Amino acid sequence: MNPLRWNFRLQMLLGAAVCGGLLAFAVYTQVRLGLEPCSLCIYQRLAFAALAVVFLLAGLHGPRNRPGRLSYGVLAAIVAAIGAGIAGRHVWVQAQPQDVMTSCGPPLEFLNQTMGPLEAFRTVLTATGNCGDIDWTFLGLTMPMWCLLWYLLLGIWAVLCAMVKRKEG
């Protein structure tokens, strides 16, 4: 069963489900494995959530005409490119030598304990703490590397699904 032969609605809902699964895994690693996210991790989660929303809207709308599908595909690709940029920055920060000061903000737990939720949110979005720690790897890739790979795959998926020729109407 070739997913590129599925209808556009199912393809986009699959993209939303993948984003949801990736976000669920991020929460799992935080809650169960005790990996505290840095500010760049939070930005990547926000980008995955935004990408999930685009995929979900595309799936729920299910435009039948090519321009409508292309609009959603391009929008999803733009969001995925933004997420890839954030993940790429995180990969770069982690690749720096330990003695080089690279930062992205204080831990979220500290922010929650010392300030209100709105102030903590604002601080996360403007933070400059250390994101260089590598706490988790799988198959030799760090979490930001996996995020970068997923952003690229989901962006390509959105464009491919939008470009597949279908019967109009």
Rank of each mutant, 00 (worst) to 15 (best):
G21D: 09
G21S: 12
G21R: 13
L22Q: 07
L22M: 12
L23P: 03
L23G: 10
L23S: 02
L23F: 01
L23W: 08
A24F: 12
A24C: 15
F25K: 07
F25E: 14
F25T: 05
F25Y: 12
A26Y: 07
V27S: 08
V27G: 02
V27K: 10
V27C: 08
V27M: 02
Y28D: 11
Y28E: 06
Y28H: 06
Y28T: 14
Y28A: 15
T29N: 07
T29I: 10
T29Q: 13
Q30I: 05
Q30K: 13
V31P: 03
V31I: 15
V31E: 01
R32W: 12
R32K: 03
R32L: 14
L33I: 11
L33Y: 04
L33T: 04
L33H: 13
L33V: 10
L33R: 15
L33M: 08
L33G: 01
G34T: 03
G34L: 08
L35N: 09
L35R: 04
E36K: 15
E36T: 05
E36L: 08
P37R: 13
P37Y: 01
P37K: 12
C38S: 01
S39G: 02
S39P: 00
S39C: 09
S39F: 04
L40K: 04
L40E: 10
L40H: 01
C41W: 06
C41H: 00
C41Q: 00
Y43V: 04
Y43G: 01
Y43A: 09
R45P: 10
L46S: 15
L46P: 00
L46G: 14
A47L: 00
A47M: 12
A47P: 09
F48N: 01
F48H: 11
F48P: 01
F48G: 01
F48I: 05
A49E: 10
A49I: 12
A50E: 01
A50T: 11
A50L: 10
L51V: 07
A52Q: 00
A52F: 12
V53R: 11
V53G: 10
V53E: 10
V54I: 11
V54C: 14
V54S: 04
F55R: 02
L56P: 06
L56E: 01
L57A: 08
A58N: 13
A58K: 04
A58G: 10
A58P: 07
G59R: 04
G59S: 11
G59N: 05
G59A: 11
G59P: 11
G59F: 05
G59M: 03
G59V: 08
L60D: 01
H61P: 02
H61R: 11
G62L: 04
G62E: 06
P63E: 03
P63Q: 00
P63K: 03
R64C: 09
N65Y: 10
R66F: 03
R66M: 12
R66H: 04
R66I: 08
R66D: 06
P67R: 12
P67G: 09
